[in-house]
Design a protein around this nucleic acid. Structure first.
Length: 902
DNA sequence: AGTCTGCATGTGCTT
DNA sequence: AGCACATGCAGACTC
């Protein structure tokens, strides 16, 4: 390229290696593409992008040439002609820019070539049959893609391109590139001028996809196409269009290697992932700012950037960045890439994993793992310095930006799907969103700019819409309308992402749902409600676990308790319905979880043969197949011929109860804050503290297993999830991680208990003092000390009663006064865990606690009296749990409980 | 105990 | 099959 100088005033690149060979020209040779700014250069004349005027003319900002297309307001079907110029496929008009030796490309949308996706139904057909305009000669005829209706490309032999009178269809030849997947070829990174955004809306359902290398590598046909969207785009056509592609319809086999290369999966986006304008936008008659997937500029190396990293900055944002934003005035903003923030990216570690290809393409080369500091400016103008480095990883590298936490936090970005963003101020529609970080470059100078935006989940990976904080921050700063929102509420269906997203979801739903569930990876972003449902379903499944049939357990005695161990895994048993009758009253179903001696709990099962429901004892476990003949509990109804015990209405009530129970669980479960919801070891430790009675709460719906006396099906404690071979695994002196953790956890709980007790004591003392002072004022000084004591006792009682809702789990009133026996067995441990701390300390020799405990004075007596009072009206387990705001979380494993004391 | 750092590992995607 | 990357994890370090 010699010493070409980029005529882009903001670029000025001169060195030869800053130019790359662009698309081939019919006149011979190639267009030249400025490496830094992506501008096109041909025959000594630099041509910048097209600028769309309101009149419908497109004007080259450099050469002033105009191209007018009558249908420009409604649809675009433009392409960059290989000899230079732009042809409108819809009306077949073209601009003979070549005559002025200028190549004009439209900034964002017409990089090397401009194809088009007709945005209304008239497009394809019109294109197909429209006579070529006078302006169109054999060189102006462009390869067209008529796939709008047929959902596939019209493949026309390129050899016919020279026939000016031939139909466009005839001209569409081997080199025709189908929109979307096949469109966008030649959107060379290097050939993409970004900096002259048009003010019209674009539909980027055709994601430009071929990068520079592909162009260079596949020369035969220079037809390069990409799509332009019109503001009047009819989204309806897009789905079939996309689906057609999605269906894998293959283009003509006669495609040249060039086009085949354009289909390279490596670089071509999946169909329909690009955004479409929403109907609402169209209806509103506004010019949508479709978020355009912009193939990034050519970077170093040969790495192809995955489409999911392609920047999707809107024209408006770009325009603001490049033109109106004073800081970047006369500069070129080159979107480089973007990335959805992962949990680890947005975590406190402060490491942002960079896509390897992006890092190697756009960031300074680093040879040492330590990397180098990288100064990146955010949209607010604040400059951050991150450490750009890499880790060796499987003979490769993993690039990270370190120290991003302050920046991430300053942008209030979070990963995951938990954050809801109101996408429109009007609708206040909250949809799950995630944060993206975008990287752009300011040319000349190569300064890196970091932006952020929020995107709905549906647009992530192939984001569309959402709020681009790179642009949006600017928009906010400069009062721009929020044109980035390519999503709004559908009139009838609530959230309506852009059709692209909807379609994308449809396309990806099945794929995703089969690969994410159960994955260790947290990439699965599941709504909390869904997760809850899943968890409940899982729990229900756990409830159905039964000991393996026809397998005799081996009996193992541990700590005076007999355990059944099975060599075979459990099996699923028959599902039953649980309920309770008010004893001696009419049979009105109540919640199975209802407590009280006045309720008689029972279980109902349906015969697999006759489908009749039979009442069973609450604690029986049924095999997966169960019939009336198996009803050994009711001889009168041990045959299918026996009528049902209750009528249809009552039966309906039973079934309804079961349903209500699940609903209740769904509704109640979210009340448990995630941070307070005990899981794993917490559950185990909590169970150890709570004692075995907790295991009975709400267990009416679950029968005891024979594996562990106090463990129910579905128990997720450590022991229950361990294989049978775990027998004897946790001895008294066991020092395994589990036991150590439990011990540590238990100690922590005890410390917390001590702290709460201390606080409570202080509060009581304060109240007492205040009360005493009041009483002193009101009463005669004759009140003696005994009366004060009585008052104090009353106050303590009131406080104790009032504090029921805050009672510590560790201070189960029922067991406060239980004396610890000399030898600890399983039950005694459970009880011991509820003893006052002092007792516990004495028994377990935790001197550090003991010392502190001794400093608490009368604490023990207070709780002792409280416990005594509580014993007068013992709380039910459920009440107790409710009072402490805890959810029963499972059942302790005796052996572990024992261990936790040691 | 909490945080940081460097690496390892598993999963899913791409080729 | 190989690669990319999200994240887990262990050792080092700091408070």
């Amino acid at each position: 390229m010699g010493s070409k100088i980029c005529m882009n005033s903001s670029c000025g690149a001169a060195t030869s290696n800053e130019w790359k060979k662009g698309w081939p020209l019919r006149s011979g040779g190639f267009a030249h593409l400025c490496y830094p700014c992506g501008s096109a250069y041909e025959d000594g004349v630099y041509c910048d992008t097209f600028h769309l005027e309101e009149s419908g003319w497109r004007e080259c900002r450099i050469c002033g040439n105009h191209l007018h297309c009558g249908c420009i307001a409604s649809n675009y079907l433009l392409e960059l002609l290989d000899y230079g110029g732009v042809g409108c496929i819809s009306c077949a008009k073209s601009s003979r820019l070549h005559s002025v030796k200028r190549i004009q490309t439209h900034g964002d949308e017409i990089p090397e070539g401009v194809g088009a996706v007709p945005m209304n139904n008239a497009g394809p057909s019109a294109v197909e049959g429209k006579a070529v305009s006078d302006h169109v000669d054999e060189r102006t005829l462009a390869p067209l893609c008529k796939s709008m209706e047929a959902n596939e490309c019209n493949l026309l032999p390129q050899s016919q391109r020279g026939d000016a009178n031939a139909s466009l269809g005839q001209h569409r030849g081997e080199e025709v590139i189908c929109p979307t997947e096949k469109v966008g070829a030649g959107f060379s990174n290097a050939t993409q001028p970004y900096v002259r955004p048009a003010n019209f809306a674009k539909l980027d359902n055709a994601r430009p996809a071929l990068d520079f290398r592909d162009i260079q590598d596949s020369l035969p046909q220079p037809y390069l196409s990409m799509s332009l969207g019109g503001s009047s785009a009819n989204p309806n056509f897009l789905l079939p269009f996309s689906s057609g592609l999605a269906d894998g319809k293959e283009p003509s086999k006669t495609w040249s290697s060039f086009q085949q290369g354009q289909q390279s999966r490596r670089i071509l986006p999946k169909p329909s992932k690009n955004g479409l304008t929403t109907s609402s936008e169209l209806n509103k008659g506004i010019i949508p700012q479709a978020r355009i997937t912009r193939p990034p500029v050519e970077g170093r190396g040969k790495n192809h950037l995955l489409p999911r990293y392609w920047p999707r900055i809107t024209d408006q944002e770009l325009q603001k960045l490049s033109g109106e934003y004073p800081r970047f005035l006369k500069s070129t903003i080159v979107p480089l890439f973007e990335k959805v923030l992962s949990a680890s990216d947005a975590g406190r570690i402060g490491r942002l994993v960079l896509p390897k290809a992006c890092a190697e393409a756009y960031f300074p080369p680093i040879s040492q793992s330590e990397g180098l500091p990288l100064r990146i400016q955010d949209v607010n103008g604040k400059e951050w310095t991150f450490q750009f480095r890499f880790w060796p990883n499987n003979n490769s590298r993993m690039y990270v930006l370190e120290g991003v936490t302050p920046c991430i936090q300053s942008m209030q970005l979070r990963a995951g799907d938990t954050e809801l963003v109101s996408l429109t101020p009007i609708n206040s529609l909250d949809v799950p969103s995630m944060s993206l970080v975008t990287f752009s470059r300011i040319d000349p100078g190569g300064k890196l700019v970091m932006g952020f935006r929020k995107a709905a989940n549906s647009e992530t990976q192939t984001p569309k819409g959402g709020k681009d904080l790179l642009g949006n921050a600017l928009s906010e700063h400069f009062g721009l309308p929020d044109g980035n929102i390519s999503r709004s509420r559908d009139e009838n269906h609530g959230v309506r992402a852009n059709e692209n997203s909807v379609h994308q979801l449809a396309m990806n739903a099945e794929k995703k749902k089969t690969r994410n569930i159960g994955s260790k990876s947290k990439r699965l972003l599941m709504h909390s409600v869904d997760a809850l449902e899943l968890r409940l379903t899982w729990e229900e499944a756990q409830d159905l676990l039964r000991p393996p049939p026809s397998v005799r357990p081996s009996i193992v005695t541990i700590e005076d308790h007999e355990f059944e161990e099975y060599d075979e895994p459990p099996v699923f048993g028959k599902r039953t319905i649980f309920g309770a009758w008010p004893s001696g009253s009419c049979k009105i179903m109540v919640r199975a979880s209802a407590k009280g001696s006045e309720l008689e709990q029972e279980q109902w099962a349906q015969c697999d043969d006759c489908s009749k429901w039979r009442r069973l004892p609450v604690d029986v476990l049924l095999p997966s197949k169960w019939t009336c003949s198996d009803n050994v509990w009711d001889s009168s109804r041990c045959a299918c011929s026996a009528p049902e015990e209750i009528g249809p209405k009552e039966l309906e009530n039973i079934l309804k109860v079961g349903t209500d129970l699940k609903k209740t669980k769904v509704q109640e479960s979210p009340k448990v804050a995630p941070e307070t919801e005990p899981t794993g070891l917490d559950a185990l430790a909590s169970a150890a503290v709570l004692g075995d009675k907790m295991g009975d709460v709400g267990e009416s719906s679950v029968g005891a297993t024979t594996k562990h006396p106090r463990h129910r099906p579905g128990c997720t404690c450590i022991v229950c999830i361990q294989p049978p071979s775990g027998k004897g695994k946790h001895k008294a002196n066991c020092t395994c991680n589990v036991c150590l953790t439990v011990k540590r956890r238990f100690k922590t709980l005890m410390l917390r208990k001590k702290k709460r007790q201390s606080e409570r004591e202080a509060e009581i003392s304060e109240r007492d003092n205040k009360k005493q002072m009041d009483e002193t004022e009101l009463k005669d000084t004759r009140n003696d000390h005994s009366e004060n004591e009585g008052s104090r006792s009353r106050i303590e009682g009131e406080v104790a009663e009032a504090s029921t809702g805050e009672i510590d789990l560790n201070c189960h009133p029922i067991r406060e006064d239980v004396q610890l026996e000399g030898g600890l067995n399983m039950m005694s441990f459970v009880e011991a865990t509820s003893l006052p701390v002092e007792n516990y300390i004495k028994q377990n020799g935790i001197e550090s606690l003991k010392t502190e405990q001794q400093q608490q004075g009368s604490l023990g007596s207070h709780f002792q009296s409280k416990a005594n009072r509580e014993n007068e009206r013992p709380l039910s387990d459920e009440e107790f749990l409710a009072s402490v705001g805890w959810e029963r979380v499972g059942h302790k494993e005796p052996s572990l409980e024992r261990n936790s004391l040691q």
